[in-house]
Simulated assay, not measured.
Amino acid sequence: MVINNPYAQYKENSVFTATPEELTLMLYNGLVKFILQGINAIEEKNIKKANGCLIRCQDIITEFRATLDMNYEISKSFDSIYEYMYRRLVDANIRKDKAILEEVLGYAKELRDTWQEAMKLAKRGR
């Protein structure tokens, strides 16, 4: 596939060359971005756009859950968190409820920031 847009080409290359840790961070950033877009769409009463954004959020959470290594106890804790976030996203999508999205946004930002900090600590330890 030929991509003429330099930004799209850069984005595609960054995904293909990213480490697993960086890909996880990209997913967290995408989750935050799509929740914010969902909130804006609800405020604008754009139901179709809100639905699309929230479906993308649900897909990201599904990916997080699918990639957990359940041989570790912490993975079970993350699975519970992701399951809760997923259910709340479904509720928010059904009700088009901004308050629920703001709750999930808080969790998503906290997870993203924690992941980012863990990446920095791991890099220093090398």
Score class of each variant (00 low, 15 high):
Asn4Thr: 04
Pro6Cys: 08
Pro6Glu: 05
Tyr7Leu: 07
Tyr7Glu: 12
Ala8Asp: 03
Tyr10Phe: 08
Glu12Ile: 12
Glu12Gly: 00
Glu12Asp: 10
Glu12Pro: 00
Glu12Phe: 06
Ser14Leu: 08
Val15Tyr: 08
Ala18Gly: 01
Thr19Lys: 11
Thr19His: 11
Pro20Val: 05
Pro20Thr: 04
Pro20Leu: 03
Glu21His: 06
Glu21Met: 04
Glu21Gly: 07
Glu21Leu: 07
Glu21Phe: 02
Glu22Asp: 07
Leu25Thr: 03
Leu25Ser: 05
Met26Thr: 04
Met26Phe: 12
Met26Trp: 06
Leu27Gly: 00
Tyr28Lys: 01
Tyr28Met: 01
Asn29Arg: 11
Gly30Arg: 01
Gly30Val: 01
Val32Ala: 04
Lys33Thr: 09
Lys33Ile: 05
Phe34Gly: 00
Phe34Leu: 01
Ile35Asp: 00
Leu36Phe: 05
Leu36Met: 06
Gln37Tyr: 03
Asn40Asp: 10
Ile42Ala: 06
Ile42Arg: 00
Glu44Lys: 15
Glu44Ser: 07
Lys45Val: 02
Asn46Ile: 09
Ile47Pro: 03
Lys48Val: 14
Lys48Cys: 03
Ala50Ser: 09
Asn51Thr: 08
Gly52Asp: 13
Cys57Met: 12
Cys57Arg: 02
Cys57Phe: 03
Asp59Pro: 02
Ile61Thr: 06
Ile61Ser: 00
Thr62Phe: 15
Thr62Tyr: 15
Glu63Trp: 01
Ala66Thr: 14
Thr67Glu: 13
Leu68Tyr: 01
Asn71Gly: 12
Tyr72Arg: 09
Ser75Arg: 11
Ser77Lys: 13
Phe78Val: 08
Asp79Thr: 00
Asp79Cys: 12
Ser80Cys: 08
Ser80His: 11
Ser80Arg: 13
Ile81Met: 13
Met85Val: 02
Arg87Val: 01
Val90Lys: 03
Asp91Cys: 05
Asp91Gln: 15
Asn93Leu: 06
Ile94Tyr: 13
Arg95Thr: 08
Asp97Cys: 09
Lys98Asp: 08
Lys98Asn: 14
Ala99Lys: 15
Ala99Tyr: 07
Glu102Thr: 10
Glu103Thr: 10
Leu105Gln: 13
Leu105Phe: 09
Gly106Asp: 13
Tyr107Trp: 15
Tyr107Phe: 15
Ala108Ile: 05
Glu110Arg: 13
Glu110Lys: 15
Asp113Lys: 07
Gln116Val: 02
Gln116Ala: 13
Ala118Val: 13
Ala118Ser: 12
Lys120Leu: 12
Leu121Arg: 11
Ala122Tyr: 05
Ala122Ser: 15
Lys123Met: 07
Gly125Ser: 12
Arg126Met: 10
